[in-house]
């Protein structure tokens, strides 16, 4: 499925602001894995996801997806394989365009965008059904400009857009961090439903330990640009917050000792 081979990324190399954000990550995901990613601020979680998505090139290493080498591809070409939701609700949708126009953009992900005409009625019907599954009443507001929606509604819509064309890999970067707890739970529940329904392979970054434990079949913790802890299977199922905190401390102590 996804394979990161010794991936490195340093920002502002050779300047005083030099920052090694990802420092040799090796990670292999199995088909259908739902991996939650935790780690302190600046641990390199977003950078890792951005390297997979091709927002910037890797310095070293390889990104492979289903045996395809994504490393040389620009971001817009990798998008064919990826569904993405960002931390900032403003980032995943076009505010000045209508809900159905945003969906139509997502529906054409990975396809040729030619001079064929806009949105067919069959398509509109599909969008309406999909929007109804969000349970937010958006199916009756298809011609509303997305800029008028709340953050939670926009995140739910972005999630739908990310999965409208089944992605080989779903990348969620703290996609509930900007939402109030209730809305965050709703969006997470939708996430789980979509992952289950389409059997999606998922990487989900979160700062919420409870969510990291509750969701997914595998958990990784990043520290200083590396994967420090990798928990899966039975161990993941039985994981508690205190287990996790303990590991966090051990990792921190080890880091302190090694420095």
């Amino acid at each position: 499925m996804l394979e990161l081979r010794d991936v490195h990324k340093t920002f502002n190399a050779g300047t005083v602001n030099e920052k090694c954000a990802v420092d040799g990550v090796n990670l292999t995901l199995e088909d259908g894995d739902f991996v939650t990613v935790i780690g302190g601020n600046g641990a390199g979680k977003s950078t890792m996801l951005n390297l997979i998505a091709g927002v910037y090139p890797v310095d070293q290493g390889k990104v492979l997806l289903n045996e395809t080498d994504l490393t040389p591809l620009p971001e817009y070409q990798r998008a064919k394989f990826l569904g993405r939701v960002f931390q900032d609700p403003m980032m995943g949708t076009a505010a000045t365009m209508e809900i159905e126009e945003n969906l139509a953009l997502a529906y054409r992900r990975g396809k040729v965008r030619g001079l064929g005409h806009g949105i067919s009625n069959a398509e509109r019907k599909l969008y309406r059904e999909k929007l109804a599954t969000l349970g937010l009443g958006l199916e009756d507001r298809m011609n509303t400009k997305v800029g008028l929606l709340s953050g939670g509604q926009r995140q739910a819509l972005t999630l739908l857009m990310a999965t409208l064309q089944k992605p080989a890999l779903l990348l969620l970067d703290e996609h509930t961090a900007a939402l109030d707890p209730k809305t965050a739970d709703k969006v997470l529940q939708l996430t789980q439903e979509m992952v289950d329904r389409d059997h999606l392979t998922t990487l989900m970054v979160t700062h919420n330990m409870k969510h990291a434990i509750q969701y997914g079949n595998r958990l990784i913790m990043m520290d200083s640009g590396r994967v420090a802890v990798d928990i899966r299977g039975e161990e993941k199922k039985n994981l508690t917050v205190s287990d996790l905190l303990e590991k966090f401390h051990i990792e921190n102590d080890r880091m302190l000792l090694s420095e």
């Binding site: 365009m97 953009l105 001079l115 064929g116």
Partner: peptide, 27 residues
């Protein structure tokens, strides 16, 4: 007509939100 086609919509999206556009595979 043009800005209603798939290409035209992609063009509008590129201006409205380039980040989102790239994430949706728009050049």
């Amino acid at each position: 007509w043009f800005f209603g086609t798939s290409l035209g919509c992609g063009l509008r999206a590129s201006g409205a939100n380039p980040n989102m556009s790239r994430a949706q595979g728009i050049n």
